[in-house]
Design a protein around this nucleic acid. Structure first.
Lengths: 253, 253
DNA sequence: CTTGACCCTGACGCTGCGTCAGGCTGTTCC
DNA sequence: GGAACAGCCTGACGCAGCGTCAGGGTCAAG
């Protein structure tokens, strides 16, 4: 079984020109040629094209795709696993964007202005080139932090300030634990997190561990919350966030 | 409040060069310049940049983004609705690709060869064709388009007042139900939730139960939305949230 | 008054193709 | 057998969307 350029193009949903291009740059060269010079693609070529298209879809530059696929140490299964991971990252990202648009719609309907930081947060880092780079210590950059803090819209209602005041005790103990070098995932920190969770449940609304974990994530993702904690002690937002999530895992199984 | 290029670039997760480019091609020109010739971006510019970035993310050529955004007949809400639809298309597409990769992995593990057609299925209806069709629909003069366009574009002051009043009405009835001790997952509360959902669908954008449920969750997770409801009555945010989610379950099966 | 971080405007370069142009191949139908 | 038409070939140019210097002003801090 073999395919001509046109056939393969139709099959794979690309143009003939694209296949010509991939041939030229050595990304995908057909297994053979007919006597007349026609390109002749065979099964292994289809395998490769499929991989190429997934990586391309994920935003990889073609040259990098070539080096990835030509690496003799990487077997096909490894590529699939990698692609799977990247695609799921992308799913999350798209979901975040859908959520952001919905939030914006709802905000409009209710006549609320979202803060600039908030509105752009989904565009953050989606650099396909450094997909392997771990999450950097973004709060080590105090300069950027101060700037964003200055910008942070103050919008809280008096009620909410009062509720925050209710939680001051726990926050102070969190800060103390942090100062004393108690690990964020220790029993003591998790106990504080649990106390925090129950405070929310008591004062405000039912907050199961899963939801509490979501809030915890927000403490480092939403600048307003981060600002609140960082004002008290440097590193406290991350600390509380970690503790809360560790506790949620402990509670939730 | 105003921003320099560098500040806006950091905020929005793009490079300074990109903003220069958008200025040059007229896609996003800053509201002003300082005496020294520095670009000065203001709030409306941020609005616009946000829209630009979503459309760009969706693969629209910049020139088309410009014509879309400069169309005086398309209000912001319309852009949001359209972006929402396109993002959800993309979600589906990515999910299909994840599924395809999983299928491929499984096939490999079981020593099964998938058919070529099967393997390239997901690449079939690729982005370009998709948004071209979208654009045709958008600019074509089908009745359906005109009708949906008329919906919000033709809203006058009176309409907005009516919509506002409708919203207030439902909220007031929610508050009453809460006051009277009617459970949030009762038929009466769910009926109110359903009314709320249909109001959104009628006045703004198509809001299926699943999306409504997501909004419901937001009412307790996002302080500003919570504040909006809590202002009217203590506990109302949680109440509406619960009712909305219960109704979504009822409607969605 | 210097330093360093920022800003400006060209201008050239690169990727990933689209889009002709000019010419050969292969099949089909009379 | 030849005419027509679809499909293949190889250049070659063009374009979008920036990245990346180069050469030079601006501004707040020390």
């Amino acid at each position: 079984m073999s395919w001509t350029v046109g056939e393969l193009a139709r099959l794979a949903g690309v143009t003939v020109r694209t296949l010509h291009h991939y041939d030229r740059i050595g990304l995908l060269q057909p297994s053979g040629r007919t006597a007349a010079g026609y390109r002749s693609y065979e099964l292994p070529d289809l395998d490769r094209l499929q991989q190429v298209l997934v990586y391309r879809e994920l935003g990889f530059p073609l040259e990098e795709v070539a080096t990835l696929l030509d690496d003799p140490d990487a077997d096909p299964a490894e590529h699939l696993r990698r692609q799977h991971r990247l695609l799921r990252d992308r799913l999350e990202r798209t979901q975040a964007m859908v959520a952001a648009v919905e939030k914006e719609m709802e905000a409009r309907q209710m006549g609320i202005q979202l803060s600039p930081e908030e509105r752009f947060e989904v565009f953050g880092e989606h650099d396909p080139a450094r997909y392997e780079a771990e999450v950097e210590e973004r709060w080590g950059d105090t300069d950027a932090y101060r700037q964003s803090q200055r910008r942070t819209a103050s919008y809280g209602k008096d009620d909410w300030l009062r509720i925050q005041a209710d939680g001051e005790d726990v926050e102070a103990r969190f800060a103390a634990a942090l100062r004393e070098g108690v690990p964020a995932d220790s029993a003591r920190a998790m106990d504080l997190a649990e106390e925090h969770r129950q405070q929310i449940t008591r004062n405000f609304y039912d907050c199961p561990p899963a939801m509490h974990a979501a809030l915890g994530r927000m403490y480092v993702e939403d600048e307003r919350f981060t600002a609140h904690y960082e004002q008290r002690a440097a590193g406290l937002a991350q600390y509380v966030s970690t503790a809360v999530q560790a506790n949620a895992t402990r509670q939730g199984g």
